[in-house]
Design a protein around this nucleic acid. Structure first.
Lengths: 216, 216
DNA sequence: TAGATTGTTAATCGATTAACAATC
DNA sequence: TAGATTGTTAATCGATTAACAATC
Protein backbone atom coordinates (compact mmCIF):
# COMPACT_ATOMS: atom_id res chain seq x y z
CA UNK A 1 0.00 0.00 0.00
CA UNK A 2 1.12 3.52 -0.74
CA UNK A 3 2.37 5.91 1.86
CA UNK A 4 -0.36 8.41 2.65
CA UNK A 5 -0.70 10.72 -0.37
CA UNK A 6 2.35 12.91 -0.05
CA UNK A 7 1.73 16.49 0.97
CA UNK A 8 4.22 19.00 -0.37
CA UNK A 9 6.80 20.69 1.83
CA UNK A 10 5.43 24.14 1.02
CA UNK A 11 2.05 23.17 2.42
CA UNK A 12 3.52 21.64 5.57
CA UNK A 13 5.54 24.75 6.33
CA UNK A 14 2.35 26.79 6.34
CA UNK A 15 0.60 24.56 8.89
CA UNK A 16 2.35 25.97 11.99
CA UNK A 17 1.16 29.45 11.07
CA UNK A 18 -2.43 28.31 10.77
CA UNK A 19 -2.03 26.57 14.08
CA UNK A 20 -0.64 29.68 15.75
CA UNK A 21 -3.43 31.96 14.57
CA UNK A 22 -6.11 29.43 15.47
CA UNK A 23 -4.64 29.26 18.96
CA UNK A 24 -4.85 33.04 19.23
CA UNK A 25 -8.46 33.02 18.03
CA UNK A 26 -9.25 30.31 20.54
CA UNK A 27 -7.81 32.46 23.33
CA UNK A 28 -10.00 35.33 22.23
CA UNK A 29 -13.04 33.09 22.45
CA UNK A 30 -13.78 33.17 18.73
CA UNK A 31 -15.57 29.98 17.73
CA UNK A 32 -15.78 30.06 13.93
CA UNK A 33 -13.70 31.44 11.09
CA UNK A 34 -13.94 31.46 7.31
CA UNK A 35 -11.06 30.89 4.94
CA UNK A 36 -11.41 34.53 3.97
CA UNK A 37 -10.95 35.79 7.51
CA UNK A 38 -8.04 33.41 8.05
CA UNK A 39 -6.58 34.80 4.85
CA UNK A 40 -6.57 38.31 6.30
CA UNK A 41 -4.71 37.09 9.37
CA UNK A 42 -2.13 34.87 7.74
CA UNK A 43 -1.57 36.65 4.46
CA UNK A 44 -2.20 33.47 2.46
CA UNK A 45 -5.10 33.50 0.01
CA UNK A 46 -8.43 32.00 1.03
CA UNK A 47 -8.16 29.61 -1.88
CA UNK A 48 -4.75 28.46 -0.77
CA UNK A 49 -5.96 27.91 2.77
CA UNK A 50 -8.86 25.75 1.62
CA UNK A 51 -6.53 23.80 -0.65
CA UNK A 52 -3.99 23.32 2.12
CA UNK A 53 -6.51 22.09 4.69
CA UNK A 54 -8.13 19.75 2.21
CA UNK A 55 -4.90 17.83 1.94
CA UNK A 56 -5.76 16.46 5.36
CA UNK A 57 -9.53 16.30 5.30
CA UNK A 58 -12.69 18.35 4.98
CA UNK A 59 -12.59 20.26 8.23
CA UNK A 60 -15.00 22.97 7.15
CA UNK A 61 -18.68 23.25 6.56
CA UNK A 62 -20.31 25.03 3.61
CA UNK A 63 -21.97 28.27 4.55
CA UNK A 64 -20.32 28.24 7.96
CA UNK A 65 -16.56 28.03 7.68
CA UNK A 66 -14.32 26.27 10.17
CA UNK A 67 -14.83 25.62 13.86
CA UNK A 68 -11.80 27.21 15.49
CA UNK A 69 -11.43 24.75 18.34
CA UNK A 70 -11.85 21.68 16.15
CA UNK A 71 -9.48 22.89 13.47
CA UNK A 72 -6.89 23.90 16.05
CA UNK A 73 -7.04 20.48 17.60
CA UNK A 74 -6.91 18.69 14.24
CA UNK A 75 -3.87 20.69 13.14
CA UNK A 76 -2.21 19.89 16.45
CA UNK A 77 -2.67 16.21 15.76
CA UNK A 78 -1.44 16.55 12.18
CA UNK A 79 1.66 18.37 13.42
CA UNK A 80 2.26 15.67 16.00
CA UNK A 81 1.89 18.04 18.93
CA UNK A 82 -0.18 15.46 20.77
CA UNK A 83 2.85 13.19 21.07
CA UNK A 84 5.62 13.47 23.63
CA UNK A 85 9.25 13.41 22.55
CA UNK A 86 12.43 13.27 24.60
CA UNK A 87 15.30 15.40 23.36
CA UNK A 88 18.95 16.11 24.09
CA UNK A 89 21.14 19.04 23.15
CA UNK A 90 24.73 18.68 21.98
CA UNK A 91 26.69 21.87 22.53
CA UNK A 92 26.10 23.71 25.81
CA UNK A 93 27.34 27.13 24.73
CA UNK A 94 25.19 30.24 24.62
CA UNK A 95 22.92 28.99 21.91
CA UNK A 96 22.55 25.55 23.48
CA UNK A 97 21.64 27.12 26.80
CA UNK A 98 19.17 29.50 25.17
CA UNK A 99 17.55 26.60 23.34
CA UNK A 100 17.45 24.57 26.57
CA UNK A 101 15.41 27.40 28.06
CA UNK A 102 13.21 27.77 25.01
CA UNK A 103 9.57 27.87 26.05
CA UNK A 104 8.26 26.60 22.73
CA UNK A 105 9.18 23.03 23.67
CA UNK A 106 6.12 22.74 25.83
CA UNK A 107 3.75 23.49 22.96
CA UNK A 108 5.48 20.89 20.84
CA UNK A 109 5.46 18.21 23.51
CA UNK A 110 9.25 18.06 23.54
CA UNK A 111 11.21 17.55 26.74
CA UNK A 112 14.93 18.27 26.92
CA UNK A 113 16.50 15.70 29.24
CA UNK A 114 20.12 16.76 29.14
CA UNK A 115 22.77 18.92 27.53
CA UNK A 116 26.11 17.52 26.41
CA UNK A 117 29.45 19.23 25.97
CA UNK A 118 33.10 18.31 25.77
CA UNK A 119 34.35 21.24 27.80
CA UNK A 120 35.22 19.81 31.26
CA UNK A 121 34.44 23.16 32.90
CA UNK A 122 30.83 22.92 31.84
CA UNK A 123 30.17 19.32 32.75
CA UNK A 124 28.07 19.00 35.89
CA UNK A 125 26.58 22.48 35.62
CA UNK A 126 22.86 22.86 35.33
CA UNK A 127 20.71 25.06 33.09
CA UNK A 128 17.55 25.42 35.15
CA UNK A 129 17.29 21.81 36.18
CA UNK A 130 18.88 20.33 33.07
CA UNK A 131 22.32 18.87 33.66
CA UNK A 132 25.28 19.23 31.33
CA UNK A 133 26.98 15.88 30.78
CA UNK A 134 30.13 14.73 29.04
CA UNK A 135 29.59 14.12 25.36
CA UNK A 136 31.20 10.70 25.81
CA UNK A 137 28.01 9.65 27.56
CA UNK A 138 25.76 10.92 24.79
CA UNK A 139 25.20 7.70 22.89
CA UNK A 140 24.42 5.62 25.95
CA UNK A 141 22.13 8.30 27.36
CA UNK A 142 20.07 8.33 24.17
CA UNK A 143 19.64 4.57 24.26
CA UNK A 144 18.79 4.50 27.96
CA UNK A 145 16.20 7.27 27.85
CA UNK A 146 14.23 6.76 24.64
CA UNK A 147 15.52 9.99 23.19
CA UNK A 148 14.06 10.66 19.74
CA UNK A 149 15.15 14.22 19.03
CA UNK A 150 18.78 15.35 18.89
CA UNK A 151 19.51 19.06 18.87
CA UNK A 152 22.83 20.35 17.55
CA UNK A 153 24.17 23.67 18.83
CA UNK A 154 27.85 22.85 18.50
CA UNK A 155 30.30 24.77 16.34
CA UNK A 156 30.09 23.95 12.68
CA UNK A 157 33.12 21.65 12.71
CA UNK A 158 31.64 19.29 15.28
CA UNK A 159 28.16 19.11 13.82
CA UNK A 160 28.64 16.14 11.50
CA UNK A 161 30.42 14.19 14.22
CA UNK A 162 27.46 14.71 16.55
CA UNK A 163 25.02 13.84 13.78
CA UNK A 164 26.89 10.55 13.34
CA UNK A 165 26.55 9.78 17.04
CA UNK A 166 22.85 10.62 16.88
CA UNK A 167 22.36 8.39 13.84
CA UNK A 168 24.17 5.48 15.45
CA UNK A 169 22.23 5.82 18.68
CA UNK A 170 18.77 5.67 17.19
CA UNK A 171 17.74 9.33 17.10
CA UNK A 172 14.77 9.91 14.77
CA UNK A 173 14.98 13.64 14.16
CA UNK A 174 17.70 16.29 14.32
CA UNK A 175 17.14 19.99 14.96
CA UNK A 176 20.33 21.49 13.60
CA UNK A 177 21.52 25.00 14.43
CA UNK A 178 25.04 24.58 13.06
CA UNK A 179 25.73 26.19 9.67
CA UNK A 180 26.36 22.88 7.96
CA UNK A 181 24.43 20.43 5.81
CA UNK A 182 24.41 17.17 7.69
CA UNK A 183 24.71 13.80 6.02
CA UNK A 184 22.44 11.30 7.71
CA UNK A 185 20.60 8.08 6.83
CA UNK A 186 17.35 8.48 4.92
CA UNK A 187 15.11 7.59 7.83
CA UNK A 188 16.36 10.45 10.00
CA UNK A 189 14.63 13.80 9.61
CA UNK A 190 16.77 16.93 9.70
CA UNK A 191 15.29 20.35 10.34
CA UNK A 192 17.81 23.13 9.90
CA UNK A 193 17.83 26.56 11.50
CA UNK A 194 20.55 28.32 9.58
CA UNK A 195 20.91 31.67 11.31
CA UNK A 196 23.74 32.71 9.01
CA UNK A 197 21.56 32.23 5.95
CA UNK A 198 18.76 34.18 7.57
CA UNK A 199 21.09 37.05 8.46
CA UNK A 200 22.62 37.09 4.98
CA UNK A 201 19.16 37.28 3.47
CA UNK A 202 18.36 40.26 5.68
CA UNK A 203 21.62 41.85 4.59
CA UNK A 204 20.69 41.30 0.95
CA UNK A 205 17.38 43.09 1.33
CA UNK A 206 18.94 45.92 3.28
CA UNK A 207 21.41 46.55 0.50
CA UNK A 208 18.84 46.11 -2.22
CA UNK A 209 16.12 47.84 -0.19
CA UNK A 210 12.83 46.88 -1.74
CA UNK A 211 9.35 47.96 -0.82
CA UNK A 212 8.13 44.54 0.11
CA UNK A 213 8.45 42.29 3.12
CA UNK A 214 10.47 39.08 3.25
CA UNK A 215 7.74 37.18 5.12
CA UNK A 216 8.55 33.89 6.76
CA UNK B 1 13.59 54.08 -14.15
CA UNK B 2 12.71 50.58 -13.07
CA UNK B 3 14.10 48.94 -9.98
CA UNK B 4 16.72 46.39 -10.97
CA UNK B 5 14.89 43.43 -12.54
CA UNK B 6 13.40 41.72 -9.52
CA UNK B 7 14.99 38.47 -8.48
CA UNK B 8 12.65 36.00 -6.83
CA UNK B 9 12.76 35.22 -3.14
CA UNK B 10 13.47 31.55 -3.80
CA UNK B 11 16.64 32.47 -5.67
CA UNK B 12 17.80 34.89 -3.00
CA UNK B 13 17.38 32.31 -0.26
CA UNK B 14 19.75 29.99 -2.12
CA UNK B 15 22.54 32.56 -2.37
CA UNK B 16 23.81 32.19 1.20
CA UNK B 17 24.32 28.48 0.61
CA UNK B 18 26.35 29.10 -2.52
CA UNK B 19 28.34 31.65 -0.59
CA UNK B 20 29.02 29.24 2.25
CA UNK B 21 30.25 26.41 0.01
CA UNK B 22 32.39 28.76 -2.04
CA UNK B 23 33.97 29.97 1.19
CA UNK B 24 34.76 26.39 2.14
CA UNK B 25 36.26 25.68 -1.29
CA UNK B 26 38.33 28.84 -0.99
CA UNK B 27 39.68 27.63 2.35
CA UNK B 28 40.64 24.35 0.78
CA UNK B 29 42.57 26.20 -1.91
CA UNK B 30 40.32 25.12 -4.75
CA UNK B 31 40.39 27.72 -7.50
CA UNK B 32 37.72 26.67 -9.99
CA UNK B 33 34.41 24.87 -9.89
CA UNK B 34 31.77 23.88 -12.42
CA UNK B 35 28.04 24.17 -11.89
CA UNK B 36 27.95 20.39 -11.85
CA UNK B 37 30.43 20.11 -8.98
CA UNK B 38 28.64 22.86 -7.09
CA UNK B 39 25.45 20.89 -7.67
CA UNK B 40 26.93 17.90 -5.87
CA UNK B 41 27.83 20.04 -2.88
CA UNK B 42 24.66 22.06 -2.53
CA UNK B 43 22.08 19.59 -3.74
CA UNK B 44 20.65 22.08 -6.23
CA UNK B 45 20.75 21.10 -9.90
CA UNK B 46 23.53 22.41 -12.11
CA UNK B 47 20.94 24.01 -14.33
CA UNK B 48 19.37 25.79 -11.40
CA UNK B 49 22.72 27.07 -10.21
CA UNK B 50 23.53 28.53 -13.62
CA UNK B 51 20.09 30.11 -13.80
CA UNK B 52 20.42 31.55 -10.32
CA UNK B 53 23.83 33.08 -10.88
CA UNK B 54 22.80 34.52 -14.22
CA UNK B 55 20.25 36.66 -12.46
CA UNK B 56 23.19 38.73 -11.32
CA UNK B 57 25.62 38.44 -14.19
CA UNK B 58 27.71 36.04 -16.22
CA UNK B 59 30.27 35.04 -13.64
CA UNK B 60 31.39 31.89 -15.41
CA UNK B 61 33.41 31.02 -18.45
CA UNK B 62 32.50 28.42 -21.04
CA UNK B 63 34.67 25.35 -20.87
CA UNK B 64 36.11 26.41 -17.53
CA UNK B 65 33.39 26.97 -14.98
CA UNK B 66 33.54 29.55 -12.21
CA UNK B 67 36.53 31.03 -10.46
CA UNK B 68 35.93 30.25 -6.79
CA UNK B 69 37.52 33.37 -5.36
CA UNK B 70 35.81 35.74 -7.80
CA UNK B 71 32.40 34.17 -7.42
CA UNK B 72 32.70 34.14 -3.63
CA UNK B 73 33.58 37.82 -3.64
CA UNK B 74 30.79 38.69 -6.08
CA UNK B 75 28.19 36.85 -4.02
CA UNK B 76 29.45 38.63 -0.91
CA UNK B 77 28.84 41.96 -2.61
CA UNK B 78 25.41 40.86 -3.85
CA UNK B 79 24.48 39.79 -0.32
CA UNK B 80 25.69 43.10 1.07
CA UNK B 81 28.38 41.50 3.21
CA UNK B 82 30.82 44.22 2.17
CA UNK B 83 28.78 46.80 4.06
CA UNK B 84 28.88 47.49 7.78
CA UNK B 85 25.68 47.70 9.79
CA UNK B 86 25.08 48.69 13.38
CA UNK B 87 22.52 46.65 15.27
CA UNK B 88 20.73 46.57 18.61
CA UNK B 89 18.93 43.76 20.39
CA UNK B 90 15.63 44.24 22.22
CA UNK B 91 15.11 41.53 24.83
CA UNK B 92 18.14 40.49 26.88
CA UNK B 93 16.92 37.08 27.95
CA UNK B 94 18.61 33.81 27.07
CA UNK B 95 17.98 34.08 23.39
CA UNK B 96 18.98 37.74 23.25
CA UNK B 97 22.22 36.95 25.03
CA UNK B 98 22.92 33.99 22.77
CA UNK B 99 22.30 36.13 19.71
CA UNK B 100 24.53 38.87 21.14
CA UNK B 101 27.30 36.29 21.27
CA UNK B 102 26.53 34.93 17.83
CA UNK B 103 29.73 34.68 15.80
CA UNK B 104 27.99 34.92 12.44
CA UNK B 105 27.65 38.68 12.82
CA UNK B 106 31.25 39.16 11.82
CA UNK B 107 30.77 37.47 8.47
CA UNK B 108 27.75 39.63 7.78
CA UNK B 109 29.45 42.89 8.75
CA UNK B 110 26.95 43.45 11.54
CA UNK B 111 27.98 44.98 14.87
CA UNK B 112 25.73 44.74 17.92
CA UNK B 113 26.12 47.97 19.90
CA UNK B 114 23.76 47.34 22.78
CA UNK B 115 21.08 45.15 24.28
CA UNK B 116 17.87 46.60 25.72
CA UNK B 117 15.53 45.23 28.34
CA UNK B 118 12.86 46.47 30.68
CA UNK B 119 13.87 44.29 33.62
CA UNK B 120 15.68 46.63 36.06
CA UNK B 121 17.80 43.75 37.34
CA UNK B 122 19.40 43.30 33.96
CA UNK B 123 20.09 46.94 33.13
CA UNK B 124 23.77 47.79 33.46
CA UNK B 125 24.95 44.20 33.06
CA UNK B 126 27.24 43.34 30.20
CA UNK B 127 27.27 40.42 27.74
CA UNK B 128 30.90 40.24 26.77
CA UNK B 129 31.45 43.95 26.33
CA UNK B 130 27.90 44.75 25.22
CA UNK B 131 25.91 46.71 27.77
CA UNK B 132 22.26 46.09 28.58
CA UNK B 133 20.35 49.37 28.67
CA UNK B 134 16.84 50.41 29.64
CA UNK B 135 14.39 49.99 26.79
CA UNK B 136 13.26 53.58 27.41
CA UNK B 137 16.58 54.67 25.89
CA UNK B 138 16.15 52.50 22.80
CA UNK B 139 14.74 55.06 20.39
CA UNK B 140 17.27 57.74 21.21
CA UNK B 141 20.14 55.25 21.05
CA UNK B 142 19.15 54.20 17.55
CA UNK B 143 19.08 57.79 16.35
CA UNK B 144 22.37 58.69 18.01
CA UNK B 145 24.30 55.70 16.73
CA UNK B 146 23.19 55.17 13.12
CA UNK B 147 21.63 51.83 13.98
CA UNK B 148 20.09 50.18 10.92
CA UNK B 149 19.27 46.69 12.16
CA UNK B 150 16.91 45.99 15.05
CA UNK B 151 16.82 42.49 16.50
CA UNK B 152 13.80 41.30 18.46
CA UNK B 153 14.24 38.56 21.07
CA UNK B 154 11.46 39.68 23.41
CA UNK B 155 8.46 37.58 24.36
CA UNK B 156 5.78 37.43 21.71
CA UNK B 157 3.55 40.00 23.41
CA UNK B 158 6.18 42.75 23.33
CA UNK B 159 7.36 42.15 19.79
CA UNK B 160 4.99 44.49 17.96
CA UNK B 161 5.61 47.24 20.48
CA UNK B 162 9.36 46.99 19.88
CA UNK B 163 8.81 46.87 16.12
CA UNK B 164 6.88 50.13 16.41
CA UNK B 165 9.76 51.76 18.27
CA UNK B 166 12.17 50.49 15.64
CA UNK B 167 10.00 51.81 12.83
CA UNK B 168 9.65 55.23 14.45
CA UNK B 169 13.37 55.49 15.11
CA UNK B 170 14.55 54.87 11.58
CA UNK B 171 15.55 51.21 11.66
CA UNK B 172 15.86 49.73 8.14
CA UNK B 173 15.71 46.03 8.86
CA UNK B 174 14.33 43.81 11.63
CA UNK B 175 15.60 40.35 12.53
CA UNK B 176 12.66 38.93 14.42
CA UNK B 177 12.89 35.89 16.70
CA UNK B 178 9.50 36.35 18.34
CA UNK B 179 6.70 34.05 17.17
CA UNK B 180 4.64 36.88 15.73
CA UNK B 181 4.05 38.48 12.35
CA UNK B 182 5.08 42.08 12.69
CA UNK B 183 3.26 44.93 11.03
CA UNK B 184 5.74 47.51 9.79
CA UNK B 185 5.92 50.18 7.07
CA UNK B 186 6.69 48.93 3.58
CA UNK B 187 10.23 50.26 3.50
CA UNK B 188 11.34 48.19 6.49
CA UNK B 189 12.59 44.69 5.81
CA UNK B 190 11.58 41.94 8.22
CA UNK B 191 13.44 38.64 8.37
CA UNK B 192 11.76 36.13 10.65
CA UNK B 193 13.33 33.24 12.53
CA UNK B 194 10.30 31.39 13.79
CA UNK B 195 11.73 28.63 15.98
CA UNK B 196 8.28 27.37 16.89
CA UNK B 197 7.38 26.83 13.24
CA UNK B 198 10.65 25.04 12.68
CA UNK B 199 10.12 22.77 15.67
CA UNK B 200 6.51 22.04 14.66
CA UNK B 201 7.70 21.09 11.19
CA UNK B 202 10.21 18.69 12.72
CA UNK B 203 7.43 17.27 14.85
CA UNK B 204 5.26 16.78 11.76
CA UNK B 205 7.94 14.77 10.00
CA UNK B 206 8.67 12.70 13.08
CA UNK B 207 5.04 11.72 13.33
CA UNK B 208 4.67 11.17 9.61
CA UNK B 209 8.17 9.72 9.29
CA UNK B 210 9.07 9.87 5.64
CA UNK B 211 12.18 8.62 3.91
CA UNK B 212 13.27 12.01 2.72
CA UNK B 213 15.03 14.95 4.29
CA UNK B 214 13.42 18.29 5.08
CA UNK B 215 16.43 20.24 3.81
CA UNK B 216 16.72 23.92 4.52
C1' DT C 1 41.51 22.15 -32.68
C1' DA C 2 38.67 19.24 -29.51
C1' DG C 3 36.54 19.12 -25.14
C1' DA C 4 34.21 21.26 -21.64
C1' DT C 5 30.96 24.07 -19.73
C1' DT C 6 28.59 28.21 -19.72
C1' DG C 7 24.47 31.31 -20.78
C1' DT C 8 20.00 31.08 -22.37
C1' DT C 9 15.85 29.42 -24.57
C1' DA C 10 12.24 25.93 -24.56
C1' DA C 11 9.70 22.24 -22.17
C1' DT C 12 8.03 20.48 -18.01
C1' DC C 13 6.51 20.43 -13.66
C1' DG C 14 4.39 22.09 -9.49
C1' DA C 15 2.12 25.57 -6.87
C1' DT C 16 -1.14 29.30 -6.70
C1' DT C 17 -5.27 31.48 -8.00
C1' DA C 18 -9.85 31.62 -9.96
C1' DA C 19 -14.24 29.80 -10.51
C1' DC C 20 -18.27 27.44 -9.33
C1' DA C 21 -21.27 23.55 -8.24
C1' DA C 22 -22.38 21.33 -3.92
C1' DT C 23 -24.41 21.97 0.36
C1' DC C 24 -24.85 23.57 5.02
C1' DT D 1 -35.67 29.17 1.53
C1' DA D 2 -31.75 32.46 0.58
C1' DG D 3 -27.09 33.41 1.69
C1' DA D 4 -22.71 31.97 2.70
C1' DT D 5 -18.81 29.38 2.21
C1' DT D 6 -16.75 25.10 1.49
C1' DG D 7 -14.48 21.38 -1.45
C1' DT D 8 -12.73 20.70 -5.79
C1' DT D 9 -11.81 21.27 -10.68
C1' DA D 10 -9.79 24.17 -14.21
C1' DA D 11 -6.75 28.05 -15.54
C1' DT D 12 -2.79 30.60 -14.62
C1' DC D 13 1.46 31.56 -13.06
C1' DG D 14 6.16 30.78 -11.64
C1' DA D 15 9.98 27.82 -10.81
C1' DT D 16 12.68 23.91 -12.19
C1' DT D 17 14.68 21.02 -15.51
C1' DA D 18 16.27 19.85 -20.09
C1' DA D 19 18.57 20.97 -24.15
C1' DC D 20 21.86 23.06 -26.97
C1' DA D 21 24.20 26.77 -29.49
C1' DA D 22 27.86 29.86 -28.16
C1' DT D 23 32.43 30.12 -26.85
C1' DC D 24 36.37 29.67 -23.87
Amino acid sequence: MDRESKVSMTVIRRLPKYYRYLGELLNKGITRISSQELSKLTGFTASQIRQDLNNFGGFGQQGYGYNVEDLHKELGIILGLDKMYNAVIAGAGNLGQAIANYKGFEDAGVKVLSLFDKNPKMIGLKIRDIEIRDVDLLSQFIKDNDVEIGIITTPKDNAQEVADIYARSGIKGIWNFAPADLIVPDDIVVENVHLNESLFTLSYFLKNHPSFDTES
